[in-house]
Design a protein around this nucleic acid. Structure first.
Length: 476
RNA sequence: GGCCCCGUCGUCUAGCGGUUAGGACAUCAGGUUCUCAUCCUGAAGAUCGCGGGUUCGAAUCCCGCCGGGGUCACCA
């Protein structure tokens, strides 16, 4: 297809949650796979809901995830400006055009009168339609009074790239506000004008707009313009699956996931799989693979619940794909404070050992702490240990002393450490589950760690012996 | 309430008239000469929302019902 232009058009009212990012992602994928353009347009027509900093926040979110826009704030082209608040003249021009065509009129009613109408229909058990209360004659419109669309009600059937055939009766078409009394357009009007002028080929948006599509279709006709390809995405549901993900319902800022140490590729992948699959059993998709294989026709029509456990699995998978040098850069902020005194070579060793255990970056702090400082002796680790709890302090001291003696002669290469550890098992007729656990507790004062030989190797001879001594003293 | 959309394991999903209803996450069990993970193997888990049709045969087509969601703003 030629000249594919898709857009993501958020209102700057805060952060982006998974649902909005997915909408942006799908629109971006369509643009990328067709060599088209992805446009960011800021729909800031409701001045009351503006949240300061949200434009920057949205842009940062997209950038962090690699969903880069080709046109938008800061990337001006002939299609700009990309803030609707800077396009007021354009909307007014189109508004006047509709007035002259007799397809829009000045709304003479105030809120009280409107409420009265609604009351009447409610009592008659009728759905409220403004057009039933249309004034008999229209006064001239000027900016400062609301302008209403004069609808031409009729039933519609239309095609949606995701949903397929959709339809609604004439009751879905009504007179709606085009220009508010503050002179700003409503979303309903502005997005249609902008999509037309910006030559948007695909409008990809979420499900809440299905109900108003007939109104838009009617407006497109009044404007005598063709509507873009419409694609409606199913909702992303919150845990429990009872509600659509929304900010007021506690939906999380996607940037929070990044802060917790989730990788952009995992977030992209999980979002894509939330509603899209390629028809095979493939679960893991790189961005390039998604660009190649994504297809609106294969997007789910039902809502999907986001599962954080699945994200964790995926993120763990991608962490394991990254070499430790690169991971050092990505996870730099997750080291415990004590790590400042240590060099990168040491940290890389730790990352290599810990990589398999990490599901997200934040876990690094706790999992790595004992590599940077000797934790206080915790004898509960022994008393709560199934086998070790049966051992007397004397026998444990003996074992640790022998271990120490062996390690003092060791050159602390990985192979030799493993050999000596195995020899200790034989010499003392101990099982790994007891002797190794004991040594592990001495070294780490935690329940789990990387392999014992590797832990010793990373910690160094001096530090290891020191820690074994600490436990010997505590047990003596 | 009116209108619209949706309905396959707990979750994400494959499936487009004939399958032992497949995969993934999560769960559980076993293995990988130590813990926690990774990795491997296996198990459990879906009367395909329910009820009627159509058909030799239905998760797949049709109708009704139920359930969930969305929407009915000078918000987007």
């Amino acid at each position: 297809m030629d000249n594919i232009r898709t857009r993501f058009a958020p209102s700057p009212t805060g952060f982006m949650h998974l649902g909005s990012v997915r909408t942006a992602l799908f629109a971006w994928l369509i643009a990328k796979q067709n060599n088209g353009k992805f446009i960011l347009r800021i729909e800031d027509t409701d001045r009351n809901r503006l949240v300061e900093g949200s434009v920057e926040h949205i842009i940062l979110t997209l950038k962090t995830l690699g969903i880069n826009f080709d046109e938008g704030p800061g990337i001006e082209t002939k299609y700009g400006p990309y803030f609707q608040s800077e396009r007021l003249d354009i909307y007014h021009k189109f508004a006047k055009q509709l007035v002259s065509k007799n397809r829009a009129y000045s709304d003479p009613y105030d809120q009280d009168e409107l409420n009265k109408f609604k009351e009447i229909t409610k009592n008659n058990k009728q759905p409220f339609l403004f057009r039933n209360f249309r004034p008999k004659s229209f006064s001239d419109w000027s900016i400062g009074t609301p302008l209403r669309f004069l609808s031409n009600p009729k039933p519609y059937t239309w095609h949606d790239e995701v949903m397929g055939k959709l339809s609604a009766g004439a009751e879905a078409v009504d007179d709606f506000i085009l220009i508010k009394s503050d002179g700003f357009p409503t979303y309903n009007f502005a997005h249609i004008v902008d999509d037309f002028l910006m030559e948007i080929s695909h409008v990809i948006r979420s499900q809440e707009f299905i109900a108003s599509t007939p109104k838009y279709l009617n407006l497109y006709e009044a404007l005598e313009i063709k509507h873009p390809i419409l694609a409606t995405l199913p909702p992303v549901m919150s845990e429990g699956g009872t509600k659509k993900l929304s900010k007021r319902d506690g939906a999380k800022d996607v940037l929070n996931y990044i802060d917790e140490g989730y990788l952009a590729e995992s977030i992209i992948n999980i979002l894509a799989s939330l509603g899209f699959n390629d028809g095979t059993t493939k679960e893991l998709f790189s961005v390039d693979e998604l660009i190649k294989t994504f297809d609106l026709k294969r997007v789910q029509r039902s809502g999907a619940v986001f599962d954080e456990k699945r994200l964790q699995w995926m993120n763990g998978h991608y962490i394991r794909q990254i070499n430790s040098e690169d991971l050092l850069v990505k996870f730099d902020k997750f080291w415990p404070e004590e790590a400042n005194k240590f060099d990168n070579t040491y940290k890389i060793k730790i990352l290599s050992a810990l990589k398999d255990r990490l599901k997200f970056g934040q876990e690094l702090t706790e999992l790595s702490i004992f590599f940077f400082k000797e934790l206080p002796v915790d004898l509960n680790l022994i008393s709560e240990h199934k086998q070790l709890s049966k051992y007397s302090n004397v026998s444990m001291v003996t074992l640790l002393t022998k271990t120490k003696a062996a390690l003092e002669k060791n050159d602390f290469t990985l192979d030799n450490l493993q050999n000596d550890l195995n020899q200790l098992l034989i010499d003392n007729s101990e099982k790994p589950v007891t002797l190794f656990s004991l040594i592990r507790i001495a070294l780490t004062e935690t329940k789990s760690s990387p392999g014992l030989a590797e832990t010793l190797y990373i910690l160094s001879k001096e530090e290891s012996l020191k820690r074994i001594d600490s436990l010997i003293q505590a047990l003596a």
